[in-house]
Simulated scan of single mutants.
Amino acid sequence: MGTPLGDFIRAKRDSIQPEMLGLPDRGRRRSPGLRRLDLAARAGISVEYLTRIEQGRDRNPSAAVVNALADALSLDPAERNHLRYLAKITGGACAAHTGAAPARRDVRPSVLQALRLLEPGIALVTNRLGDVLAYTSAYEAVTRDTGLLDSAHPNLTRYVFTDPRARTFFADWDEIADEQAFDLWLGPSTESYEWFTAELAPIAGPDFAHRMNQHIVPRRGVLRLNHPSGHELQLLRETLELPEDAQQLIVFLPTGDRTAQAIDRLSRRPHGGLRAIS
């Protein structure tokens, strides 16, 4: 059985063509991408050791080996951070796992106060599992009639993968799906991550599992939304990490006057004000 670390290295290796790294084309290969032989040589390790890492038979490569593999794969900063994180959980938290449990849903009063100060802006508090924990009235206006906030405990990841309306609401659904799948690796805890993925996998189907195993590090560009009212919205996202709570405060900013005016019209409709979900 493989590990997240091995899966990521293998996925990156498969996605790289030799010529991208200035290596000669050695002709026909049994699998796409970079050969183990070439990656091992670039990283300064043996092919046998690389094979053990990819297959999950070596779960504790040194920091030097992890950094060498990052260099050999020409990873960008975000991908390097993900590689280091997977090395950590593969050799540490995953091995020590003792049980699964849902993530905490409470939001600190001071964080709620900060969210309140952001009114009438578009903002929410969430975690890496996608739980929508608190949001401003403008966020409610932007997501109204999309189905996202219909449940008692709304969850963005579940919505993206299981609600057909999400594919219309998110103009770039594929990119958003990759984002939500990737963020699960950084869940509030190993236990809550395993609990949520076990719950979601049976209803989300093979596409969800495929995206999880790809380990695609998202670029998080402009968020494009097709609101049911007919408005087309384009939003920038600014994220404030709340490490003490394993949560995030995300603020959405209009990219131009057209989106700002559309949000203003949506926000004039009746709403319930700031809401925290516990």
Results as ranks from 00 to 15, higher is better:
R269E: 04
R36D: 00
L156G: 03
R258E: 06
V65L: 09
T239N: 12
A201Q: 14
A134R: 05
I250P: 01
G230E: 03
T3W: 14
A260K: 09
R84N: 05
D38W: 13
A171P: 01
S267W: 10
P61F: 12
L86S: 11
H227I: 02
R116P: 01
F161R: 02
I53N: 01
R219S: 05
Y159D: 00
G187F: 13
D183S: 06
G99T: 11
L200A: 14
R219K: 13
H215K: 10
E54V: 02
P18D: 05
R84K: 12
F252S: 00
V251F: 10
A166N: 09
P4A: 11
Y193E: 04
G130V: 09
P24A: 03
I250S: 10
N60D: 00
N226S: 12
A114V: 05
T90P: 07
L240D: 02
K88S: 02
V251D: 07
A96E: 11
A93Q: 10
A95R: 15
R108Y: 15
A123I: 04
E179N: 08
D58P: 03
A134S: 01
P164H: 15
R265W: 09
G33E: 03
E19Y: 13
V47N: 06
L266I: 08
T259L: 04
F169S: 04
T143M: 07
P243F: 15
N155M: 11
A101Y: 07
G256H: 07
A72I: 02
D178I: 04
A78N: 11
R269I: 01
R275L: 06
E238N: 15
T143Y: 14
F170H: 13
Q214E: 00
N67G: 09
A198W: 07
G205Y: 14
L118V: 14
G33K: 02
R80P: 03
D163E: 12
L149F: 00
P188V: 06
E48N: 05
G272V: 05
Y193H: 12
R105T: 13
D257T: 07
D245I: 10
L225M: 13
R28N: 07
P109W: 04
L249C: 00
G33S: 11
P32H: 14
T51A: 13
S15K: 03
A87D: 08
K12E: 03
G205N: 05
G6S: 13
I122A: 11
N127I: 10
Y49C: 00
L86P: 03
A138K: 07
A100T: 11
H82I: 11
D14P: 07
G6M: 14
G205E: 11
D178P: 13
L39S: 01
E232I: 10
D25H: 04
A11N: 03
Q248K: 09
R108S: 04
G121R: 15
A262S: 09
S189Q: 12
L37K: 08
R36A: 02
G44S: 05
K88W: 09
F182V: 00
L21C: 00
L149G: 09
A63E: 05
L266Y: 05
